[in-house]
C-alpha cells in the first residue's frame, strides 16, 4: 500500500477511536447511559417529581410529569397507571398524590441522589455543574446498604451541595425553610440556603455568578425586569426567572451580618489581614487542607510573594509560608486589611 493510502487509513482509525472513547459524547459514554434500566428510571424520576411538588406545596398534574420527564402525555398517563398499580400513587380528579409507600420510595431515591452529589462535591474534583447530571444516573443503581455505607463514610451529612436536606436513614426530612429571594425588602440582609439545580442552564448561570449556599447577600432593588443584590461586596444583577431559583432566609440579628469583607485574593504583596471565614464553596479535602495549615477565622495572614504568572501567591500563615492558588483565595474572606508594606 502506498504511504498516502496508509495515511488516510491511519487518520480514519484514529478518528474512529476518538469517536468511541470521547468523554461524554463518545459511543462508550452513551452506551453506559443507555444501560441503565429505563423503566425503573422513569418510575423513580416521576416519584421524585411528585415528592418535589408535595414539598413545595404545589399541585402535580399529568402534564407536569410529562414535562418534567420530557415524554408525551400519553406515555405519562401509562406511567401514572403503572404507579397506581404498584400502589405508589393515588390519582385524584386533577392531581396525582403519593401514597405513604410512594413517598418513602421517593425519599429513598432522593437520599441517594443528594448523598451522591455530596460525595462528588466533597471527594472528587468534578465541577459543580456536573454533580446533578452524575447523580441522576447514580440514583437508580445503588443498593440500600451501599447508600448507608456511603453516608457513614461522608459523616452522615445533612445537606447536599445545593443546600437541599438529605433524607436521614429513617427517611426523615426537616421542615421546609426559607423564602424566595423576591420576598426580601430593599436593604434587607439574608443568607442563601438553596440553589435549585433544575433546569441546569439556570443553575450553571447562578454558579457562574459565584453564588453558593451559605453566602450572605443584601437586596438592593428589584423590579419586573431584574433583581439587584449585593453578594460578597459585589453587585449581582439577575433576571427574575433566574432569581426565582434562589431560596434565602433573612438575617435578623445584626451581629451575624458580614460587613466589608474582602477576598484573600484582593490582598496585595506585603499587605496583612485577618481571616474572617472560608466559603462553603470550599469543601471536602480542600477545606481540610486549609485547616491543617491553621487557616481558620482569626488567623493573621500576610501576602509574601508572587510566582511568575502571579498565580499562585505565597502567604505567611502562623510563621510558615504557604502558596495558595487564586481559585482558593477567591473563597477565603478576610477583614481588617492593613495596607502597610513589609520589607521595603
Amino acid at each position: 500500500m502506498s504511504p498516502a493510502t496508509l495515511l488516510i487509513i491511519g487518520i480514519i482509525i484514529l478518528s474512529a477511536f476518538a469517536f468511541v472513547i470521547w468523554p461524554d459524547r463518545g459511543i462508550l459514554a452513551r452506551w453506559k447511559k443507555i444501560r441503565v434500566d429505563s423503566k425503573r428510571v422513569f418510575i423513580e424520576d416521576a416519584l421524585k417529581h411528585l415528592y418535589d411538588c408535595e414539598y413545595k406545596n404545589t399541585v402535580c398534574t399529568l402534564n407536569g410529569i410529562a414535562n418534567f420527564l420530557g415524554i408525551s402525555n400519553e406515555k405519562a398517563s401509562r406511567l401514572a397507571n403503572l404507579l397506581l398499580e404498584m400502589k405508589l400513587v393515588n390519582i385524584l380528579e386533577n392531581s396525582i398524590q403519593l401514597t405513604a409507600e410512594g413517598r418513602s420510595y421517593a425519599l429513598r431515591v432522593i437520599r441517594i441522589h443528594r448523598l451522591w452529589e455530596r460525595y462528588l462535591a466533597d471527594q472528587t474534583s468534578l465541577g459543580s455543574t456536573e454533580w446533578h447530571k452524575e447523580a441522576e444516573l447514580k440514583e437508580h443503581s445503588l443498593s440500600e446498604s451501599q447508600v448507608n455505607e456511603l453516608a457513614a463514610q461522608l459523616g452522615n451529612p445533612l445537606n447536599d451541595p445545593h443546600g437541599d436536606p438529605i433524607p436521614s436513614e429513617e427517611l426523615q426530612m426537616p421542615e421546609k425553610r426559607g423564602e424566595p429571594i423576591s420576598a426580601l425588602k430593599n436593604g434587607e440582609f439574608a443568607t442563601i440556603i438553596h440553589l435549585e439545580d433544575e433546569p441546569k442552564e439556570i443553575y450553571a448561570q447562578l454558579v457562574a455568578e459565584g453564588l453558593y449556599p451559605g453566602m450572605q447577600i443584601r437586596m438592593l432593588d428589584q423590579n419586573a425586569l431584574r433583581v439587584i443584590f449585593e453578594a460578597d461586596g459585589e453587585e449581582t444583577v439577575l433576571a427574575p426567572v433566574f432569581a426565582a431559583n434562589i431560596t434565602v432566609i433573612p438575617i435578623k440579628e445584626k451581629e451575624n451580618i458580614q460587613e466589608s469583607f474582602h477576598t484573600l485574593s484582593s490582598l496585595k504583596k506585603g499587605e496583612s489581614a485577618v481571616v474572617a471565614g472560608i466559603s462553603n464553596a470550599m469543601r471536602g479535602l480542600q477545606r481540610r487542607r486549609l485547616f491543617d495549615f491553621g487557616l481558620v477565622p482569626g488567623t493573621k495572614i500576610t501576602a509574601m510573594m508572587d510566582s511568575f504568572g502571579g498565580d499562585p501567591i505565597a502567604y505567611e500563615i502562623r510563621s510558615s509560608i504557604i502558596a495558595l492558588r487564586k481559585n482558593q483565595t477567591d473563597f477565603i474572606y478576610v477583614k481588617d486589611v492593613e495596607r502597610r508594606s513589609k520589607n521595603v
Binding site: L285, P312, A314
Partner: peptide, 8 residues
Amino acid sequence: ASTFSLEL
C-alpha cells in the same frame, strides 16, 4: 479528588 497546597 484534587487539592492544592504547597509549603515553602
